[in-house]
């Protein structure tokens, strides 16, 4: 099965059709998506700034990370679900949109950066938990994360202005 047939199958799902046909569904999904991304980036930003060396409301970086992580993940799940809802309503159009494809790449970069941080600097966090500024690896991960998530939001906003309907 080619990619196009898969996308067409997704497009033809009853749920995709109902998102397309209900006038309120799309704006509702968009609004929830913005709320979700605001929680995701809003909480990640606080952690990233701490990794870069901006003092937070507590000294220990590890506790700050653990404190925000549940909010970030729950909101990220909501962003994925609402994002999938929008995608399936016009799967072929999104798959043909450069900003959408670049956004998926940027999301992967954000994920890889997080995985890299967790398998390196984060393992030794007890050694620099209260050290200011944090080690170079942590600062690098913080900068990369801040930058990448801003790019994700930028690309996401541009999808709405460049999406061309493909049937």
């Amino acid at each position: 099965m080619s990619i196009d047939t898969t996308l067409q199958t997704i497009y033809d799902l009853p749920m995709s059709a109902s998102i397309r046909e209900n006038v309120n569904a799309f704006p509702l999904l968009e609004s929830l998506h913005v709320v979700a991304l605001a929680v995701v980036f809003g909480t990640i930003m606080i952690v990233d700034l701490r990794l870069i060396g901006v003092a937070s409301h507590r000294r220990e970086a590890s506790r700050l990370i653990r404190e925000f992580l549940p909010y970030t993940w729950v909101a990220f799940m909501l962003a994925v679900v609402t994002g999938l809802g929008m995608f399936m309503s016009n799967a072929l159009s999104y798959a043909a949109n450069t900003y959408f494809l670049l956004k998926m790449v940027a999301l992967m970069v954000a994920g890889l950066n997080m995985a890299w941080f967790h398998s390196t600097a984060y393992r030794r966090i007890s050694e620099w938990d209260e050290t200011m500024p944090p080690p170079a690896a942590a600062r690098f991960a913080g900068f990369t994360s801040l930058f990448t998530w801003m790019v994700v939001i930028f690309l996401g906003r541009w999808i709405g202005f460049t999406l061309e309907m493909v049937w």
């Binding site: 913005v34 709320v35 991304l37 605001a38 929680v39 980036f41 809003g42 909480t43 990640i44 930003m45 606080i46 409301h57 909010y71 801003m150 939001i153 930028f154 906003r157 541009w158 709405g160 202005f161």
Partner: peptide
């Protein structure tokens, strides 16, 4: 689009800080 992007980035700062 770019002004809207900055507008959204600003609301993420508000939401993150409001949560805390």
């Amino acid at each position: 689009p770019d002004v809207q992007t900055v507008h959204i980035l600003a609301i993420t700062v508000i939401v993150g800080s409001a949560i805390a």
